[in-house]
């Protein structure tokens, strides 16, 4: 894990001075439930891609190819938005770490 900075080292006034630094924050660590994408069922309507708040749905050539688990926080929105007749994303409990 990256070493945390002390109070003297961080910019004053809560400033984040590095543009796009949120890419370093892996929100995948928040995940309780993991979305699993079924390519065979998927119609590539891209609703999940539109709604995912983390931009974690990986799309290549208009096709959903998977989920970026570094950033997927497990909110389940993609699974809820996937049309009921398709149901190509199922939420699966993450294995307990401890």
């Amino acid at each position: 894990m990256k070493e945390l900075q002390g109070w003297k080292d961080i910019p004053i006034g809560t400033a984040i001075i590095e543009a796009g630094s949120s890419i370093k924050y892996l929100t995948g660590g928040w995940r309780d439930n993991r979305p699993e994408h079924n390519k065979d069922k998927c119609t590539n309507c891209l609703l999940c891609w539109v709604y995912c708040p983390e931009g974690a749905i990986i799309v290549k050539d208009d096709q959903v190819t998977g989920i970026n688990y570094d950033y997927c926080k497990g909110c389940g929105i993609c699974s809820a938005e996937c049309p009921p007749k398709v149901k190509a994303i199922t939420m699966v409990k993450e294995p307990k770490l401890m």
């Binding site: 945390l4 109070w7 400033a15």
Partner: peptide, 20 residues
């Protein structure tokens, strides 16, 4: 030089901001 001010700081950094 774009900056973000007042973004979220969770328990790992909030204390350092207040100490400063």
């Amino acid at each position: 030089n774009p900056v973000t001010l007042g973004a979220c700081a969770l328990p790992d950094y909030y204390t350092e901001h207040k100490k400063q």
